[in-house]
């Protein structure tokens, strides 16, 4: 098992008159090709943990190793480069650029990376949209797509840079049951067939059930596996 992401005593405290601890002492390992679901009640720090894992936020204490490299002390540009090359993000709301077509949205990270020619980039974008079942919607604007379709465009965009890890924050939050099921299948294929680790924050037990491992956060603290299983069972009931 190759560990692709590791954290040690990860803590994030929001400074202020009354400091707020978002997550505390998180020790975590994510293997290559593993599909991990993070669950927990609202305000338990799931999204905050995801932002830390995605290097969007900087921990107050603790460390993150990505693909064996320590990310502590890296500047904003270096972190942006890692996000550009090695991470993919999917959020609850699709966050597509409204003035860009589905294809242009997918091509955004590729074009920023600048590693492919225009023709190669387009071919890759079309292939990604095809893989999420949107081959017929490449030139449509987000306003012309349904919620599920937009989310699939967002997934195609998140995968366009061939990330090591896909980080998803409530990806099914705005989707119906059918679209959620389809997305869950996509994530499984991604993790198991394409060896892209998936870390997804979710409230949806049926979605989490498809994951290889379920982590449970309560008050910013990661619960031990047996307690996590207990809490998951309670959430199903």
């Amino acid at each position: 098992m190759t560990v692709i992401l590791r954290t040690e005593a990860l803590t994030r405290v929001l400074a202020g008159v009354i400091p707020v601890t978002l997550v505390e002492g998180i020790d975590l390992e994510i293997a290559r090709g593993e599909f991990v679901a993070i669950m927990g009640p609202s305000g338990s720090g799931k999204s905050s943990l995801l932002y830390l894992l995605g290097l969007l936020d900087v921990p107050t204490a603790g460390k993150i190793w990505l693909n064996g490299s320590d990310t502590a002390g890296l500047g904003e540009d270096a972190l942006a480069n890692i996000r550009l090359k090695e991470l993919g993000f999917v959020f609850q709301f699709h966050f597509l650029l409204a003035e860009f077509t589905a294809l242009d949205n997918v091509l955004l990270p590729i074009r920023r990376l600048g590693a492919l020619s225009a023709r190669e980039a387009r071919a890759k974008g079309l292939q990604l949209l095809d893989s999420v079942g949107l081959a017929d919607h490449v030139n449509k604007y987000p306003s012309q797509l349904s919620g599920g379709q937009r989310q699939r465009v967002a997934i195609a965009r998140a995968l366009s840079n061939d990330p090591l890890i896909l980080l998803a924050d409530e990806p099914t939050g705005a989707l119906d049951t059918r679209a959620s099921g389809s997305l869950r299948d996509n994530f499984q294929v991604l993790a198991h067939s394409k060896q892209c680790s998936v870390v997804a924050v979710t409230h949806d037990p049926s979605f989490a059930k498809a994951a290889d491992r379920i982590l449970f956060l309560v008050d910013g603290k990661l619960q031990p596996p047996d307690r996590a299983a207990e809490l998951f069972d309670m959430s199903v009931r």
Partner: peptide
């Protein structure tokens, strides 16, 4: 602002 946030999360630099 939301687009800026998403672009930066994708890996756009502040200078971009």
């Amino acid at each position: 602002t939301r687009d800026i946030a998403i672009m930066k999360s994708i890996g756009f630099h502040a200078r971009d």
